[in-house]
Amino acid sequence: MARMADRIREKLRDNLAPSVLDVIDESRMHSVPKDAETHFKVVVVSQAFDGLGRVQRHQAVYRILKDELAQGVHALSIISKSPAEWEAEAAVPASPPCLGGSKSESQGN
C-alpha cells in the first residue's frame, strides 16, 4: 500500500492540477507511534481556487481526501492559494508545537 503522503499528493495533483504542491508529514511532531502517518500539512496552489473563499477551498480539499481522512489522517492543515495569491506571498507559516497530551500522560506516568 502506498504511503499516506503519496496518496494525498496523487489525489490533490489529479484533482486540482496544482502549480505548487507540497505534502508535509508532521506526525513526528505529535504524540503518535513511530511511523504513524496521521498529521499532515498540505500547500496547494491551483487555478481551481480562483474566486473561492478559504472555506470553499478547504471543503474542496476535504472532499478530495475524504477516504484518507476516514482511514487514519487525524489532522490536516491546509494552505490553499490561487496562483496570483502565491505570487504575491509564497510564505508557508511554521506549524505550532503540539499542545496535546504526551504518551506518558496518557499512560498515567
Rank of each mutant, 00 (worst) to 15 (best):
H30A: 09
L99F: 14
L52Q: 11
A36E: 08
D25G: 05
V42P: 06
V55L: 07
S27E: 05
Y62K: 05
R28M: 13
A75M: 02
A17M: 09
G51K: 02
H74N: 03
L16I: 12
Q59L: 04
A90V: 03
D22E: 15
S46I: 02
R54M: 14
H58V: 07
F49M: 07
H30D: 10
S27N: 05
V23G: 09
S80P: 13
Q71D: 11
S46T: 07
P97D: 12
V73S: 00
A60Y: 08
S95K: 08
R28G: 14
E85F: 00
Q56S: 12
K34Q: 15
E10G: 07
A36H: 03
K41H: 11
A94E: 07
P96H: 09
A48V: 11
G51D: 08
A88R: 01
E37F: 02
H30W: 01
S95Q: 15
V44G: 05
D25W: 00
R63L: 10
A60P: 07
Y62F: 10
S31F: 04
I24E: 15
A70G: 06
V32P: 11
P97W: 06
A84D: 14
I64A: 13
K34F: 15
Q71P: 02
S27C: 11
E37W: 03
V92S: 05
D50I: 14
L99D: 15
M29H: 15
R13D: 11
Q59D: 08
P96E: 12
W86Q: 06
E10I: 07
A60L: 12
I24A: 10
G51W: 00
G72K: 00
V42M: 09
I24H: 08
L21S: 05
H74V: 03
A90R: 01
A70C: 01
Q59H: 04
L76K: 00
A48S: 14
I78F: 05
R63M: 11
S80K: 04
L21G: 09
V44K: 04
K81N: 09
A84E: 15
G53D: 11
N15T: 09
Q56A: 10
D35I: 12
S19P: 07
S95C: 14
L12I: 12
R57H: 12
E10P: 09
E37Y: 01
I24N: 11
D14C: 09
A36Q: 04
S31C: 09
I64P: 13
A94F: 07
S95M: 09
I8S: 10
A94C: 07
G72S: 02
P96A: 15
V43H: 02
L76F: 00
L16C: 13
L69M: 04
A90E: 08
A75V: 08
V45F: 00
G53W: 02
R13A: 14
V20F: 00
Q59K: 06
S82D: 14
P18G: 10
A70T: 01
R9P: 14
A75H: 02
P33R: 06
R9C: 13
R63P: 14
R57Y: 10
S77Y: 07
A94K: 06
A90T: 02
L99I: 14
A88L: 04
V55A: 04
T38G: 03
